[in-house]
Computed example of a mutant assay.
Amino acid sequence: MAYNSPSELLELGDDDSSYYRWVHGRALNSLNPRYMLPVDADAIKRSEFHHRMLQFLFNGKNYVGPVKEVLQPSQQRRVLDLGTGGGFWAIDMADEFPRAEVIGVDLAPIQPRSVPPNCTFELCDLDQWNLPYPDNHFDLIHARSMHTGIHNYPRLLHEIGRLLRPGGLVILIEPDLIPIVDGKPAPQLTDTSSSQGWLAFWDTYRACLVQQGIDVTVPSRLPELLAATNIFQHVVTQDGNIPIGFYPPDQLSLTVGQFAWMDYDLLIPATKPLFLTAGLPESKVKRLIKDAHHDLYYPQLHCSSLLHIVHAFKRQP
């Protein structure tokens, strides 16, 4: 099925070629030109690594907060997964809550076709007014690692507030874009020589996102942004430090670190279309990617990232 405008909701079909555009050798989505990370086989792998990492972080669960209470099976419940990626979270939630209707929304049809009967996937650009769903329709809305494709995140939060029923739950998860080295955020480091390639990569990534109109401070301001809407209450923050690599001594942190490492191993080259589109010379982009990979493969210090996790309820009338 072809589409007429970026605001039109699409259903997945057999011929998906019109949903992609090729930029510097990688397949990108056609709906939102602001989101410059590829949507290909590596993107599906990244989506799964990120999902499995969070499952371990959440002690085997797919969520934080009172999800079971919100999705109590006494009546039909509806779940919306924004930026579903490979669809792993939506599928697992559909399996866990078979009486709930689960909808996963993304910019590209990279989700599997064989899914639980209560799970569907749809295509939509989420960076718009209005999202094509009714008011007060969903009991739970979940969004993670998607702010880099949203130029007006407060507007998205207002839309989430519109779509949630009173008393409904929103879960937001966003990784911080400021790296942490040996427990210190990059701005606090006095000696950057041991992780120069890693730090230069993240500096460039943030700068290119800003050039695309992305607010890179969103992850650290999630509670503040939710409160500013006057739509949500009982905002709970559960930030976590995510190790990157194979250094943690305990098994749980080591597993989280391994999945994070695999995620970032694929993210580093995935930024090439963004960097080149921003006007960086190809030689510099190759160097940034090579040096970041070197610091990832042969770390002299322990790298980690801060994951911002927030959930809140929509106010009752």
Rank of each mutant, 00 (worst) to 15 (best):
K286M: 12
P281I: 00
G86R: 07
C303W: 13
A94Q: 12
D81E: 08
D215F: 09
N152G: 06
R287D: 13
V235T: 08
N152H: 03
A200P: 02
R21T: 10
K284F: 03
F97N: 06
P269M: 08
L276C: 02
P109Q: 02
G87K: 06
D139M: 02
T255G: 06
A27R: 14
H294E: 15
C208Q: 02
P33A: 01
S7R: 12
T148Q: 12
Q251M: 07
N59H: 12
S74C: 13
K61C: 13
V310T: 14
I150K: 06
P175D: 02
W89F: 08
L164Y: 06
G168E: 05
D191A: 09
L163H: 11
Q196V: 10
F58L: 12
S305A: 15
F88V: 04
D191Y: 13
Q300L: 15
A100H: 11
M53C: 10
E48W: 08
T229M: 04
D127L: 08
V310K: 00
T204Q: 02
A278N: 04
G245H: 12
P223F: 00
C124F: 03
F201E: 05
R99M: 09
A2M: 13
Y264K: 09
L10I: 11
I244R: 14
P249T: 15
L226R: 02
Y20M: 03
N118C: 07
Y63H: 14
K290I: 06
L10H: 15
S195F: 05
L54Q: 09
D81K: 09
L266C: 13
L57P: 11
T148K: 08
H311I: 02
H308D: 03
A2D: 08
T204R: 03
P38A: 02
K286R: 09
G183N: 07
D265H: 15
G149N: 03
G161H: 06
S5F: 03
A260Y: 10
S305M: 15
S114C: 04
W261V: 05
D92H: 05
L177E: 07
D135L: 07
L82E: 01
R155Q: 14
R287T: 14
V310G: 01
H151T: 12
S114T: 05
A200S: 13
D15S: 10
G13H: 04
I180P: 10
V105C: 14
E282L: 02
